[in-house]
Design a protein around this nucleic acid. Structure first.
Length: 575
RNA sequence: GGGCUCAUAGCUCAGCUGGAUAGAGCAGCGGCUUUCUAAGCCGCGUGUCGGGGGUUCGAAUCCCUCUGGGCUCACCA
């Protein structure tokens, strides 16, 4: 595809020797108002070296650049030189690209032969999968899809919280107050009750803590009875988690959680020792990070058992050895910023030059209207409930609107789940937010259903065109014979512009690990499409006009489809 | 107290590595369906961009400082 920005930079570069083409490219911007042009070059920086007023420079430069074929107009306004791309060339370049990519529009091979690991979701065994977990799950899934679409080899890892003293507590609690049937009926809910009770009882009976620690030590040493219970807890929990993943359509390549690394820490500790990093402090073994303005990293407890950080170091080393990753991405809450700073610093000090290939992608906290979520106090909104309620509401709307859809169940699921995921990916990751039923169940405006609806509209137009879709695309392939005059209106042209930018938006979203950039762009495309759809009639009698417009609809439809897919959202053909 | 982070319209938020009059959605009011899906489209905004300094031709954007919220700081994960 023609990179129009580069073309502009080249033109200017021919006239301006003071700046390199890269510098010019960086300086080029898109004017706030498209009436001012497609690209703008500000001349302020040249004022010093040319010893002229910026507006004079702009005027002179503008004169020299007039009359080149890719640009219909070059205009100087104040200190800016504004470029208007020749519309037909632009439309042709944009839409040819969509057709050429044959459904894969927006994808790339820039990541070829590079392995990217995305660790995400990572819930704790025997704890509820609540609304707080949606962030890592959905953001991580989208980041995975973005990298996958850009050609990277990807590995999705669910780093389960399946290890630690908490399981000592759980086993003690189960033995004291539990019974098998209850757990089998509602595993996580019941196990959580035991866990809560443990914390209540421990106030009056502090010896329970010691029991829990002892039991965990037994578990760590592979004691059969404890292992069996732990395995059971894990199995029933995973079954519940998978139910949620199925609804969301999310899969993992590996469920290697914390316990997976329990036998891989000795080696890591040896390296730390060999490097003279391990020092004793208050009975525990630490790596002193004071020189880096960080609190000490605890490697080993007084009693010799390891900690979360130790396991994460082992996990990183294991992953490097196993996958030889180009990037090792952790989609984990911002609460753990310090943890990851320490993790990466220790890896660095251990002499691994790949420590900077590990990247923590933090996100903000979800709280409830009555405060922070707390599993121990039972103040929690289950993710599964949110999803089911969104599906139920969608079903009501479908029935009320009497939508022509083959299968209400499937459509309701696609739209309901889409609404929840889209809402989650709408804003910047780092922001904290308060969960609100009103918000997730609102389907108007900048929402998932709005984008899906737009997609369904486009699909409907193509259906109604009475053209066989496959044949249509082949026909459209004949780009030379399409008269782009018919899609030069403001409404059509602004849609083309957004479609043109779609591939670069995907790259930016991946580079910044920020799916919301894509989410926002999809809303823009949907808005532009709806305006076009409303203002102009597509299935007109004139065959030439119809052909041009259908090509645009087709391009919009593919963009929306691929965009939604990258967010982990289905694109329904009817709704 | 130290570190990290956030603060933009009534509410929820965009605003890319500084650039031309700061933008959406929601809520509110008013329009638009003999025409391809009204989950739609169009119109209506007097914002100390938290306050104060600084850098710059130019700052919501970069630096400093203050205020306010969130997270976090040794044997949990």
């Amino acid at each position: 595809m023609i990179d129009f920005k580069k073309e502009v930079a080249q033109l200017i570069s021919n006239q301006v020797s003071e700046l390199t083409i890269e510098e010019i490219n960086d300086m080029l911007e898109r004017p706030v108002d498209s009436k001012m042009g497609d690209y703008a070059f500000p001349c302020f920086k040249l004022a010093k070296s040319l010893r002229k007023a910026p507006n004079i420079i702009a005027m002179e430069l503008g004169e020299k650049l007039k009359g080149c074929e890719l640009f219909s107009e070059v205009e100087s306004v104040n200190a800016y030189v504004n470029f208007f791309i020749e519309k037909k060339a632009f439309i042709k370049a944009s839409l040819s690209e969509v057709v050429r990519m044959d459904g894969k529009f927006g994808s790339s091979t820039i990541g070829e032969n590079r392995k990217v690991i995305v660790e995400f979701s990572s819930p704790n065994i025997a704890k509820p999968f609540h609304i707080g977990h949606i962030r890592s799950t959905v953001i991580g899934n989208s980041i995975y899809k973005l990298f996958d679409f850009l050609g990277y080899d990807t590995v999705r890892i669910n780093h389960l919280g399946d290890y630690g003293t908490q399981f000592g507590k759980m086993i003690v609690a189960y033995r004291k107050w539990g019974n098998k049937e209850d757990v089998e009926k509602a595993p996580i809910k019941t196990l959580l009750e035991y866990y809560v009770k443990f914390h209540e009882e421990v106030e009056a009976h502090p010896e329970l803590e010691d029991m829990a620690r002892d039991v965990f030590t037994l578990l760590e040493n592979g004691s059969e009875e404890e292992m069996e219970l732990w395995k059971w807890f894990k199995d029933v929990s995973l079954k519940e988690f998978k139910r949620v993943y199925d609804i969301l359509g999310i899969e993992f390549d590996s469920y290697a959680g914390e316990s997976f690394y329990s036998d891989k820490m000795g080696k890591v500790i040896d390296i730390i020792k060999d490097r003279n990093l391990l020092v004793e402090s208050e009975g525990a073994m630490i790596v002193d990070l004071e020189a880096f303005n960080l609190p000490p990293a605890l490697i080993m407890k007084k009693d010799g058992s390891t900690l979360y950080l130790t396991r994460d170091i082992a996990a990183a080393v294991y992953r490097k050895e196993t996958y030889d990753f180009y990037k090792n991405i952790y989609v984990v809450a911002s609460q753990q910023n310090l943890h990851f700073q320490q993790l990466m610093k220790v890896i660095d000090l251990m002499g691994f030059d790949w420590s900077n290939q590990c990247v923590h992608i933090p996100f903000g906290l979800v709280s409830l209207e009555d405060g922070t979520m707390s599993t121990r106090s039972g103040r929690v909104v289950y993710l599964e409930d949110v999803l089911n309620r969104a599906i139920a509401q969608t079903k009501e709307i479908i029935i009320e609107k009497d939508v022509n859809t083959e299968n209400i169940e499937i459509t309701a699921k696609q739209v309901g789940i889409g609404a929840v995921i889209f809402q989650e990916l709408s804003n910047g990751r780092i922001k904290d937010y308060v969960f609100s039923w009103d918000k997730v169940l609102n389907f108007e405006g900048e929402t998932g259903p709005y984008v899906q609806y737009t997609y369904a509209r486009a699909a409907s137009v193509l259906r109604n065109s009475k053209e066989d879709l496959d044949k249509l695309v082949v026909k459209l392939n004949d780009i030379e014979n399409i008269d782009f005059n018919f899609i030069e209106s403001d409404a059509a042209y602004s849609l083309v512009k957004l479609i043109y930018r779609f591939p670069e938006v995907i790259i930016e979203a991946a580079n910044r690990y920020e799916p919301s950039i894509l989410t926002r762009h999809l809303v823009d495309i949907a808005q532009a499409f709806n305006r076009f759809y409303h203002d102009e009639h597509i299935l007109v009698a004139n065959e030439e006009e119809k052909k041009a417009k259908l090509l645009l609809v087709y391009a919009a439809k593919i963009s929306l489809h691929n965009g939604l897919m990258l967010l982990g959202i289905a694109a329904p053909e009817r709704m």
